[in-house]
Amino acid sequence: MILPALAFGAVVGGLLGLVGGGGSILAVPALVYGVGVPLAAAIPGSLVVVGASSAVAVLPRIRRGVHWRLALIVGGAGTITAYLGAAVNRMLDQKILLLAFAAIMVAAGIRMLRRTEAVGGSCSLPEGGVNWRSCLPKAILTGAVVGFLTGLLGVGGGFLIVPALALVLGLPMALTVGTSLVIIVINSLAGLGAHVGQMHFDWAVIGAFAAAAMAASLAGGRLGRRLPEHALKRGFAGLVLLVAVYVAFQAVTSR
């Protein structure tokens, strides 16, 4: 299981570094179907991977590439609802969780296929900043939704956070990626806290997956700056949709 963990960890981390979010949505299906980790352990295990690789990926942007106030507001709102999501997770059947995961992956893939430009939302300022006080209700609502999904499905939420920061809150793209990564770290920690009693997995396997993801996230971040953003998002969207179909098929046909 170590070799598959290294391979799939590299893929997830590389995608996270390339597109600044969204790679984490593949962590759960990669752990379940690629590495063979049970879903109950894959959800908290994916949060370890997502949080660690996002923390590494944000290091080059930590000084000038993060809007810390919004990151703390959105991330803080999510820490509360992450526990609610984890509570709902324990009440649902595995098939329902996998189908919900597939549905969210489809929504994320379709969103990435659309041509969207970060032209600023209602909270953006003419000089390129953000009036975070007027954005406070939107920021709290965004954090609450993403935090719930983090606890429910073990995703960092980058595929939701990036468009929310850029298009809803109006954060410039120069700050969106780094801010998103900080929020993912906060959400992952909150999700881990909510799943603390369920962390019964092979730490060697999860550690190998996380180590490969962290290394690949740095390499992906460097490569991503050289490739067209539109091409990256379209390619990733196609991959997400294919995995969503596979996850849904497995959920429907499994006994």
Rank of each mutant, 00 (worst) to 15 (best):
C123N: 15
C123G: 12
S124Q: 14
S124F: 02
S124P: 10
L125W: 06
E127S: 13
E127G: 06
G128C: 05
G128R: 08
G128D: 10
G129D: 13
V130W: 09
N131D: 15
W132A: 12
W132Q: 09
S134P: 03
C135L: 04
L136N: 07
L136A: 14
L136C: 02
L136V: 05
P137Y: 05
P137M: 06
K138D: 07
K138L: 15
K138S: 12
L141M: 14
T142W: 00
T142C: 14
G143I: 06
G143W: 07
A144H: 02
A144K: 05
A144L: 14
A144I: 04
V145E: 00
V145T: 10
V146N: 09
G147W: 04
G147A: 10
T150H: 12
T150P: 10
T150C: 15
L152D: 11
L153A: 09
G154N: 09
G154D: 04
V155Q: 13
V155M: 15
V155H: 09
G156R: 13
G156E: 12
G156T: 07
G157M: 07
G157K: 11
G157W: 01
G157T: 11
G158E: 13
F159I: 14
F159Q: 11
F159N: 03
F159M: 11
F159W: 06
I161F: 04
I161C: 00
P163H: 12
P163S: 12
A164C: 09
A164Y: 08
A164M: 15
L165R: 14
L165V: 07
L167G: 08
L167V: 14
V168D: 07
L169A: 09
L169P: 11
L169W: 10
G170Q: 11
G170N: 13
G170V: 08
G170H: 12
P172W: 01
P172T: 04
M173E: 11
M173G: 05
A174M: 07
L175K: 15
L175S: 06
V177S: 04
G178T: 06
G178E: 00
G178L: 01
T179W: 01
T179V: 10
S180N: 01
S180V: 02
L181R: 09
L181Y: 03
V182R: 02
V182M: 07
V182I: 15
I183N: 00
I184M: 13
I184E: 02
I184F: 00
I184L: 01
V185Q: 03
V185D: 01
N187V: 03
N187S: 04
S188E: 02
S188D: 03
L189G: 07
L189P: 04
A190V: 01
G191T: 12
G191R: 11
L192K: 04
L192A: 01
L192R: 06
G193L: 00
G193E: 01
A194L: 00
A194C: 05
V196Q: 05
V196A: 14
Q198D: 15
Q198V: 00
Q198T: 04
Q198C: 01
